[in-house]
Design a protein around this nucleic acid. Structure first.
Lengths: 149, 149
DNA sequence: GCCAATTAGTTAGCACTGCTAACAATACTG
DNA sequence: CAGTATTGTTAGCAGTGCTAACTAATTGGC
């Protein structure tokens, strides 16, 4: 059994490393987003709308971990560009449902392809063992991140 | 040998997953940065100044992958808060060297500890096999990210 | 049924980051 | 020395994110 101090130091080093990796990964990927003609947050929100289907504005804000006023503005921008449509709910007229237009779906598919390709290309060249390590690590990191308050 | 299409699809899924993880990891960590009284970019710049020692403004901008005007503003903010000092170079008077003050070093140490702790705590509770997976995955992701243009 | 409390979304205004373009000051070079 | 290159700054823009304050609609208690 390792001493507690050593465990902590090891975990600190891991945490530091992963933080740094996240920063660099995102910086690299974000450059690609620009080419889609959409900023990161807009592309990300559009992605949720496309894949999760019509959502209320609040649901979308929660999914993107953003406050409602911020999402209002993102949706306005997406709507101005014709990528998304706001549909009122007949039963509860306070509610705004957001759904992707066909053009929104197309733009997302392209932007996503570009963005993912940037990471996917080097990942496709890893050997199968390494790919498997990444798959398992993703689950672990996913749990760690999900556990954060 | 697997078909090319399958390899690509697997790598795409991995890439997508890691992109999403990076976004969520950083969002969680950034909340901690706020408690340091510093925003993410300022803390990050301060970190480079503290660990890499005195740097010119351009070097700092390059290290943070940001354009000079952005770094000028970050350094101004850090200087206003007494965390950093700008020192002119006697040999080349165009140059501004940025160095951390003792207070800057102290603030960084605290903020960094808080930020890292947020990730390190759940990571310390992983079993050793999982920690090892993360360590190996970090190297792989590091190589992938480093390979990006 | 009606008024109060709650809920969904919006508007306004702020701080911050990041960019480009244009500029000043200094250093280098033919 | 004149012209060019480099370093850093200022100005002004677009975008994100927040809180506070507001409107409109729904729900609950009486």
């Amino acid at each position: 059994m390792r001493a507690r101090a050593q465990d902590t130091a090891f975990a600190d080093a891991l945490a530091d490393r992963w933080h740094s990796l996240a920063v660099h990964l995102l910086r690299a990927v974000r450059r690609e987003d620009v080419k889609a003609g959409l900023t990161g947050p807009r592309l990300s929100a559009l992605s949720v709308v496309v894949f999760t289907g019509p959502l209320t504005l609040s649901e979308l804000a929660a999914a993107e971990q953003v406050k409602p006023p911020t999402m209002t503005r993102l949706v306005q921008a997406l709507e101005r560009e014709g990528l998304v449509r706001r549909v009122g709910d007949p039963d509860d007229r306070r509610i705004v449902r957001v759904r992707a237009t066909p053009r929104g779906q197309a733009v997302l598919a392209q932007g996503r392809a570009r963005r993912v390709a940037r990471l996917a290309t080097p990942m496709a060249h890893l050997d199968p063992t390494e790919q498997d390590t990444l798959r398992r690590a993703a689950d672990i990191i996913g749990r760690v991140v999900a556990s954060l308050p």
